[in-house]
Structures are given as structure tokens and as C-alpha cells.
Design a protein around this nucleic acid. Sequence first.
DNA 1: ATTTTTCCCTAACAGACGTTAGTTTTATTT
DNA 2: AAATAAAACTAACGTCTGTTAGGGAAAAAT
Lengths: 197, 197
Amino acid sequence: MAKIKSNRTSTRKDIIVAKAAKLFREKGYSATSMRDLAEHVGVEAASLYNHISSKAEILQDICFRVATKFVLFIEEIDASNRSALDKIEAILRFHIRQMIENYEEVYVSDREWKHLTDPYLSNMQSQRRAYRQRMGSIIEEGMRRGEIKPIDASTAVLIMLHAVSGIESWHRSKRKIEGDKLEDNMVKILVGGLKQS
Amino acid sequence: MAKIKSNRTSTRKDIIVAKAAKLFREKGYSATSMRDLAEHVGVEAASLYNHISSKAEILQDICFRVATKFVLFIEEIDASNRSALDKIEAILRFHIRQMIENYEEVYVSDREWKHLTDPYLSNMQSQRRAYRQRMGSIIEEGMRRGEIKPIDASTAVLIMLHAVSGIESWHRSKRKIEGDKLEDNMVKILVGGLKQS
DNA sequence: ATTTTTCCCTAACAGACGTTAGTTTTATTT
DNA sequence: AAATAAAACTAACGTCTGTTAGGGAAAAAT
């Protein structure tokens, strides 16, 4: 029977993954050693292998857990009855929120996925491409309906997705505006930049 | 007398730095070994040390060369007699152009600087902060003059700088729009998002 | 109280890393 | 042609890496 540790909802593996996310974000996947990680968890490096199978597995967990969450959200939004612009805003807000509240894992998923190995790497590349294409389709629908100014959909997608990753600067700031205000300001600028005027 | 190699304008060190930029972008600084780099240059790893002093020196070169170029540009623009919005547009266009034409080095400077070591790391952090603050001041000036909608300047800066780094997706696309069109679309969305309407 | 299971430890492994030192080869200068 | 300088090579070094194996301690189950 798997023993529950530290907190009933959190296994040792969860702790390892959470600490790993923090270190992978701070230093990068390759620059973080298993000995570094073990030190933060509070065990010896060799002990980690009672709970995980490999360093690579940790990265896979983080990347696919985050990717899945985003895919599920966009599917839900895309199936809803909203204008294209409202859909885009909802997706944008979700990205911003995730980047504020689940920063470590979202950052790692977004910036360190290139260290995955096949077949996970190919899988992730496909997922990311499909996700961008899906966002692009929503934007194109908005252009057809006259809600969104005539622009290159791919460009709009890359702007929004990368602008959100800029929240890493917000996390590093000493004096930062409130999360809600950050979200509203970003939406104002980004959605405002899309709107037909 | 230092011997000129390969091309009168390009020393062996220049070749090493250019190949390094490519590999650091593709794989990350830590995941790129000196043996990897040497293979791409066409020598043994130990031979690199006839031209460079260390792996760290290569990263310093790339990061500070790019940073200096950006600082010089914003100083020139800031000293000019233009509206705040025009200044922002000029800076944005410069960033976009650099990201299109000098992709490898700009990407590495933007994404791998955290692997610098002190005092270079502290120096780089200070430079980046000062740069963002400078952009923020221009935006605030634009707000005072009624050119730019009332928003959080720091948020606007983080959006623009990170949106530009999204050009990495453009580089990876098979079917991509022309550089000029990409630039115009990005400016339309981002500057459009700032304009008082 | 005893047995079983889980988890941590130490020790070790094989391989890779960045870099140095000395030698050899190639290029340049005289 | 000979001497000198530059650049490449091989070999090696000390350290670090991810991971495995086996033993012991702690926790859980009986």
C-alpha cells in the first residue's frame, strides 16, 4: 500500500516534482542536478529513485500535466457559445492566471520542454503546434465576423502566448501590481490590440 | 600578429561564438558541451582554448554584445525629438528586426543570460532592469501626453519585450509570413494596444 | 511482539564534463 | 631554407553527472 506522507494529499513524488519545478525554473533543467534536487527535498540523490524512475520522468510529468490543463481549457472554451473575441479573452485570462498562480510548472512547461526526449518531445511539439493552430482558428473566425482587425492570425497567437510568459518579469519584480490588475492590464492591451476599431 | 582565417573579416573566435550561439539557442547553454561545439567548429574541444578563455566567456560575449546594441539604440531614440508613441514604435521595430536578422545571438542573450556568473550576472540584471525602466518612462510620458491609454507601464513593457521573443515561433514555422509583414502585424497589434482610442 | 513493506542510507559505477599541459603540425616571418 | 609563431592534436586531470545495488532503519500491517 502506498504510504501517504507529509500531507494526505501530497505524496513524496509530488514534493519532488514541485521542488524540481522550482529548480528547473530557476536554473534550467540541465543545470539542475539530481544532487541539487535531493538537497532541496531533504534526502540523498539516490533516495529520489524510490519515488521517480528518472530525471527525465520529472520533466515529462511537469510538461504534460500543464499541457493537458491548457488543452482541456481551450476545448471547453471553443465548445462554448461565445464570440471569438470573448473566447480569446477567456483563453488569455486563463493563461495569465496559470502563469500567476502555477508559475513554476507553467514556466518549466513553456521554457524547458525542449529537453524532453522522443517520443515525448515529438508529442509535445505536435501538441503545441495544434494548440497554436486552434487559437489561430478562433482568431480567424473573429476576423470573418468583423470582431477582430485583419491581421496575421499566427502573429497574433505568438504575441499573446509570449506576452503571457512575460509574467516572469512580474514575478521577479520587487514592487509589483496586484495579480488582478496585471490580468486586466494585459487583457486591455492585448485584446485591445486585436479589436476592430 | 594575429592571423586572419577563413574570411578577412572573421576570426576563428568569431566562428566559435557564432556556432556557440546557434547551439546555445537550440539546446541551451548547459546542455551544450564544449565537445559539441568543437564538433560544429571542426576541431577538438581542447583546441577551442587557443581562441577563447572559457565556456563562460563565450556566453558573456554573446550576451553583452547584444545588450550593448539594444542600449545604444534606445539611447539614440530617447534623445530624438519624437512622440512617445513613435519612440515606442521605433524601439519595437528594432527589437523585431534584431530578432529576425540576428536571431541566434538575440535569443541567447534573452533566454540564457541567467547562466552568467557574477559579476557579469549582476551587471546583466542591472542593465535589463534599467532598460525596462527606460522603456517604462517613455510609456509614462506617452500617458501624460494623452498618446497612450492609462495602463501599467511595467505591464506594457513586459508584454512588448516578451511578445517579440515570440518570433522564435516564427523562425520555427514552415510556412511563415514575410519578415516585413510580421513586423507590421506585430506593430499594429502592440502599438494599437497602447494607443489612446 | 513480530513480520513485512517502504524508504532512506552508503557505496559504487560508468560516463561525461571543462580545462590544462605538452607535443606535433601548419603557417608565417625572416 | 630556417626560424619563429600560431594552432591543432593527444592525453590527462579532477570533478560532476544520473543511476543502481544492497543493507539498515523506520513505518505499517498482522
